[in-house]
Amino acid sequence: MLRKISTLLLLALLCCCGSKNHQQRVALDPSWYPLDLEDKNAQLVGFSTEILQKISEKLPLAKIITDAHYLLEDLFQGKYEAVLSSFPPYNFNKDRFDFSESYLMLGPVIVVNKSSDISSIKQLKGKAIGVLSDANALLVELVPNVLIHQYTSKAQALEDITSGVLDAALIDILSAYAYCEDLYQDKLKVGSLPLTNEALRLITARDKNGSLIKAFNKEIHRLKQSGEYQKIIDKWGLPQKEIKK
């Protein structure tokens, strides 16, 4: 009888210890749908993978590659515990999902001439502004006397700033820094922090894994405080201002 009890206690102890080391599966869609990243997908996959690897030194996480079509559906079916996604934390989405803090901001920024002092939406009053989406147009349409010009090409919008056709343009932060630090390094600059909360986040099903969200946030803070986050940002050539957001 004592031997049977001892065996049961041992099995319970092993199960308990095993659960602590159980890897939580985190899915990643390498297309980052619905983002239009042009040729930056690989950068974000590499960056996100390295962030997960660093966090996995403290938390047992396993990365799974999937595709956008099944990403959230399979999360609800329990095929993995979380996803890394740009899915927005709107109020109606929060009824179904829990969101971590951002680990990379992706919203639009204001791009201006090097000599400009524009750094906020309010300073666009009476200015000619280039936008590439209806969503970005909504950000500025209530600014008094603003002149909105719709574009389909980021390059053309930036070229029109240099020629004086535009005073500024709203461009996603990844593209803005890529252009301003390369082709337009002597002419244009990023004048603002991201204007929206678009970002990459860890997402779980609502009220299913709050402990993972909290632990993920804690580890992101740790990486930033230790300087490791900045090193990963630098390695993958991502915007420097994101860490100051």
Rank of each mutant, 00 (worst) to 15 (best):
A205I: 07
L124E: 02
L106W: 09
L202R: 06
K245Q: 15
Q23H: 04
T196R: 14
K125D: 01
K187C: 12
K208R: 11
E228K: 14
V143Y: 07
L193M: 14
P144W: 05
E38L: 10
S6P: 01
R96C: 03
A155E: 13
I64A: 05
L75P: 12
E181H: 10
E101L: 14
K241I: 15
K58V: 09
W32T: 01
Q225G: 15
Q230D: 03
K245L: 12
E81C: 13
P239N: 04
I173H: 14
D36G: 04
C180T: 15
T204S: 06
L61F: 09
P34C: 03
P144C: 02
L132R: 08
T152F: 09
D182Q: 15
L104Q: 06
I243M: 01
L44Q: 05
K20D: 00
K127V: 02
G237E: 02
I5E: 00
P88C: 04
L11R: 00
I110V: 10
K94L: 11
A62V: 14
G46E: 00
K187Q: 15
G164R: 12
L35I: 00
D186M: 09
N41R: 12
D95C: 05
K4V: 08
M105C: 04
S211Y: 07
Q23N: 03
K235T: 03
Q43L: 15
P194G: 05
D207E: 14
S86C: 07
K224N: 01
K54C: 08
S31Q: 10
F47R: 00
Y151E: 01
P194L: 05
D29W: 05
M105P: 08
E159T: 13
I51C: 03
L35T: 00
E38T: 11
L166Y: 12
T162P: 10
K122T: 09
F76L: 02
W236I: 01
E141H: 14
Y103Q: 03
E81P: 14
S119T: 11
N145M: 09
A128W: 09
M1C: 05
S56W: 01
L37P: 07
S192G: 12
K244P: 03
I232D: 00
A27R: 08
E159C: 08
K58E: 06
R206Y: 10
A68M: 03
H69W: 11
I148F: 11
L188E: 06
N209W: 05
L195H: 13
S116Q: 11
G18H: 02
N136E: 03
A135D: 04
K54M: 10
L59G: 05
P88Q: 06
S31R: 10
L193W: 06
I118P: 07
Y177G: 08
L28P: 05
K40C: 08
E198Q: 14
L124G: 08
D39K: 15
S86Y: 06
